[in-house]
Amino acid sequence: MTVSSLGEDRESEGGFGGNNTSEPIKGSATRSVVRFLKYGNWRRFMGVLPFIVYLGIFLLIPAISVVVDAFKGDNGNFTLSNFSIGFSGVYFESFKNSIQLSLFSAVISTVVGLLVALAIVASPGRTLRAVVTAGSGVFANTGGVPLAFSFVATLGNFGLVTELLTKIGYNPYNHGFSLYSVLGLTIVYEYFLIPLMVLIMIPPIDALRKEWVDAAASLGATRIQFWRYIGGPLLAPPLLAGFLVLFTDSFAAYATAAALTSGTIPIVPIQIGSLISGNVLVGHAHLGNALGAGMIGVVIIAAIMYGFVQRRASRWLR
């Protein structure tokens, strides 16, 4: 490559660099497909066939059938009416509630989880860190029915915290709060979402090297400049990816909400649940499928964004 002028050079280099980042993935994929077909390497994949078949039968077939049947009327003919009902009125409201609930709870847990992760990575002792990490591992796995009931004992009408607040003259139930509302659910969801975020954020914060801080300082950067140009950009992708994971997680959550509100809160999973349990709208036996397809749609959007974030980050990650 001859270097004629600065601008030109940078441009051609840009193209070169761009190719280079994406090529290894593409190249190896093509190559492995060729090898796969050419050298009979498919035999190698026989061993995973049982797994794939199992997954196909018990996950993919049900998922696909939900989407397919969403387009069927009661008589089996193609129709879009399930969707037109599913995305209007009370069902539209529940989509709105679900997305609102997931957004709120994901935003809160992202912020709090990040703060906790920062606090424990920065702490000098190993013990505190070990305790918080192990605790997060356990609490992130807590959920569902028991969680719902322990919050009834805490923030329910006769819960401990409610009682204490009432004693100091502030009964939250007199001020519009209810555990059995979207706000209440948001609080309960934090119980497993925050630890999840802590677990997600510890490795990337850990991976911020002291050398980068030192190098930035030696180059004249202030602490704020370090965070703006190096620390921030490095933490943004895992933070965003984590946010999307939390969003999906709370969007799909059913058990906690069902146990807490006895299936009365208008969010999509609960609506699908009550349609399954027999509250079928006459003439729209497949309405639940339309709602399910809608949920899959939302989750797919989140998954695509997640993939996009990961790909952006992988420019500078291995």
């Binding site: 050398e211 180059l219 190096i230």
Partner: peptide, 25 residues
Amino acid sequence: GMVFQSYSLFPNMTSAANVEFGLKV
């Protein structure tokens, strides 16, 4: 100007951006 043992380049920047960093700030 300091050079460290290893891993001191900012991983989210190209070599050019790394070199430019001190001038940028």
